[in-house]
């Protein structure tokens, strides 16, 4: 199982400016919550799935993807089974299926699925490094930006270290691969010290490396990397503005 993470590619979605993509994701998600029409999430879900397919992004076999999609189905079922307002379509013992229940199921389940799919689209098609640089160029203080980049670097490193320490413990005959209630307690206790000590060493080293290269010396810094903002990005941004304004206006009229 691989985590849900950036999948390199060269589709139109991949090439879109990270902040434009983020804008679309946030704006459409918010609009879905403002709109009360029961069928509103359906076109968003359909378009998101189409876009995933067109951009060559894969959800199959990704850790957590199934869980999130199943949650939306679960939410839909809850509405279906426990909403007893509206005209009754069918009865099943103590449970009633109503037309309101059906609409609520589509609305609540679909809205969750739409928001999840939108964020998948964003995460799978955006290099987090590009996002960090784009944010810094857009005015995010560079210390915060590099805190994010450092996390991107260190988290997998610590995961690997923890794995190594775990293996080192197995190799010493500490029976962590057997099941039992004390297993987790043991594991955490013996894992913490080695990983912590190595983390502190790494942080020391990184501090020397960053300061030695002038990090934090100036209030601002320059950037070699450009995150290109194309005419297409500009157009996407204009459309986004129109959709957002129009959407909000419509929602207020409801």
């Amino acid at each position: 199982m691989q985590p849900i993470a950036y999948q390199p590619g060269n589709s139109a979605l991949h090439r879109t400016h990270p902040l434009v993509k983020a804008g679309w994701m946030v704006s459409v998600s918010v609009l879905l919550f403002l709109f009360r029409q029961w069928a509103a999430p359906l076109p968003v879900v359909a378009l998101s799935l189409l876009l995933l397919r067109l951009s060559g992004l894969r959800l199959r076999g990704r850790r957590g993807a199934r869980l999130l999609l199943l949650t939306s189905v679960g939410l839909a079922f809850t509405q279906l089974l426990f909403q007893d307002q509206g005209s009754v379509l069918a009865r099943l013992g103590p449970l009633t299926l109503t037309d309101t229940g059906l609409r609520d199921a589509v609305y609540v389940g679909g809205r969750f699925a739409a928001v999840v799919l939108l964020s998948f689209l964003f995460v799978l098609s955006t290099d987090p490094n590009d996002l960090a640089y784009a944010l810094m160029r857009a005015g995010l203080p560079y210390r915060l930006g590099f805190a994010g980049i450092t996390a991107l670097r260190l988290v997998p490193m610590f995961e690997q270290e923890a794995e190594t320490v775990y293996q080192a413990q197995l190799a010493r005959g500490i029976a962590l691969d057997r099941r039992g209630p004390r297993r987790w307690l043991d594991w955490v206790r013996r894992l913490l010290m080695p990983v912590l000590s190595s983390a502190l060493t790494k942080v020391d080293m990184l501090a020397v490396s960053m300061e030695g290269r002038g990090f934090g010396r100036m209030p601002h810094r320059t950037f070699l990397r450009t995150v290109p903002f194309t005419a297409r990005d500009a157009a996407a941004l204009v459309v986004l503005a129109l959709v957002t304004v129009g959407g909000v206006a419509l929602a207020l009229q409801q």
């Binding site: 030695g212 290269r213 002038g214 934090g216 100036m218 810094r221 320059t222 070699l224 990397r225």
Partner: peptide, 13 residues
């Protein structure tokens, strides 16, 4: 590329 540029960017070159 980012790594090589890091120190120079910090100096605002």
């Amino acid at each position: 590329r980012d790594e090589l540029a890091f120190g120079l960017e910090n100096r605002c070159l």
